[in-house]
Amino acid sequence: MIAFVKKYEGLWLFVHSPAAIIAAIVAALIFVGAVFAPWIALVNPYDLASFSLFDGLLPPAWEDGANPKFILGTDDQGRDMISSILYGARLSLVIGLSALSIAAVLGVGLGLAAGYYGGRFDAIVMRIADVQLALPAILTALLIDGIARGILPASIQQDLRVAVLTLAIALSLWVNFARTARASTFLQMNKEYVQAAIMMGQRPTRVMFVHILPNILGPLLVIMTVDLASAILLEATLSFLGIGLPADSPSLGTLIRIGMQFLLSGEWWILWIPTLFLVALVVSINILGDFLRDVFNPRLR
């Protein structure tokens, strides 16, 4: 029994951590809802024909004057809030996950190589990381966005918004991966199994990816979770600032920006319901990240 529990310690901790379970359920629900949005959403917010202005500004189902068809109410265009949120979460997650993948591949690759080769290569990568640190995430993202506005002709700018946004977020996150991967690789380089592999004459790529990488996955997984949360926040922030996605393909951040117009009027749900969803999603991911950190770093428990 004890041996069994030790082997699946992560699982054991998970089953005994109500916060982690709730977070996983919330994250999974939003994730599934986002993936299957086209099939389960009442209306398609991109399709003008699927909603009607006559349904505009309806409150959630439990308030007076609601239409029970729209459980969380509608916005001024008559779009069902649930549908907008599901499509918005879909877009937020697509951008967040793609940015995360790019940042992870770039950052882990550079970090591993910097830690493995050390010396001049390491110094160069770390100086680039220093410069990147002096220009924090939001700044980098804004900057890339600005550059894209300057370079790209207006006609294709709209089409490339998602790509530009993804790239901007990815570039602002890679440093985290690179620094973590490098620090962990340095620790592993002193371990004797790595020295044994190098002594044998194995190729550097094999030593890095077959020997070292599996041993540094733990901290990287933690970074990945935390950075997914950051990526979603960053996307929302950029869209809120009005330089992310345009209003006709709303992400969660854009929905909140639109909702801001109703801050002073009575239609509270247009602002606060998307906000609640965004916060719930990010809190869940962060709780899972915290949980993973505890699993991989038992000393802090």
């Binding site: 926040l233 929302a236 922030t237 909140i256 801050l263 906000t275 965004l278 916060v279 990010v282």
Partner: peptide, 22 residues
Amino acid sequence: TLVGVSIPTFVIGIMLIFIFGV
């Protein structure tokens, strides 16, 4: 604090405006 890091800065701002300003 976990909830704190998860709420975007702009949402915190909006909430403060809503409560203390509006």
